[in-house]
Amino acid sequence: MTGANVLFDAPGPRARRRSLIISIIAGVLVLGGLVWVISMLAAPREASGGLVLPGQFDPTRWDIYANPAVWGAIVGGITRTLQAAAVAAVLALILGVVFSLLRSSTIAWVRVPTAVLLEFIRGMPVLLMMLFILLVASTGQYWAVVSALALYNGAIIGEALRAGLASLPRGQREAALSVGMREMQSKMLIEFPQAFRQMLPIIVAQLVVLLKDTALGFIVGYNELIRTTMYNLSAFYGNRYLFSLFFVTLVVYLVINLSLSWFARWLSRRTASGGGGRRGPKGGQPVDPTQGLLVVQASAAAKQSYVQPGSL
């Protein structure tokens, strides 16, 4: 349904003019809303006791950014956020591979408990897991954040890899076994590389989510970017800078996340055109982690249920 114009007759000159006029009116309304918000922010406000506070764009609310120490603190916060995200991402990838192997094991005693564990991990909030690790294992905030993120995202990546493994053509595994490879060799040398490649866009998108979730560290007390700016710096310099600090934090997050999302999209385009997208989530569409995963899982399940009668 990408070509929505199938639904209409081709617009004539009058319809085109009308849609242009509506477009301009809507644009003016949106711009007007923006201007209103900005003017509200810029207007000086009266506080209690006849005190007049300067507007949000007044230089006195932004003068701390002339101080290099402030930038030093912000960069420190960014570093701690990225560090937690990087360590958690590596651990999550390793855990994902382990989980997917255990989950697709032929031994029921391994497979079933892993499935239950994965459901448990995926079903509860990451924040609760952070608190659990913090209080029960008393690891300190950093490791609480990192290991909770690694566990949660490892479970999701594991599920993605398993779906990728299940959706591979069965001939791949049969061919590997018939040239004399062992089960494990076939898994690691033949099936995994293909499943990993097919699931790469989903995995990268999940890692972007992981990066965003490091912000939960704010609540359990890990000194990441939001805690650094919105808590430490705003407590030190005063509430006056609350909005400007929020603005800077937002911009930093947007820059990091948008460039990562852009990278994920580029990667999914690249892998899709490289002949790897045999049975991947539909070709050129932007990949949404949960959705692509659902499609592949369903097609894998459908395939299994379809294959069974013949193989028995």
Binding site: F218, I226, F246, L250, N257, L258
Partner: peptide, 12 residues
């Protein structure tokens, strides 16, 4: 904008 802002920051 909304998808790339951490929820913690939004709720803050």
């Amino acid at each position: 904008l909304a998808r790339n802002t951490p929820l913690t920051l939004v709720l803050f």
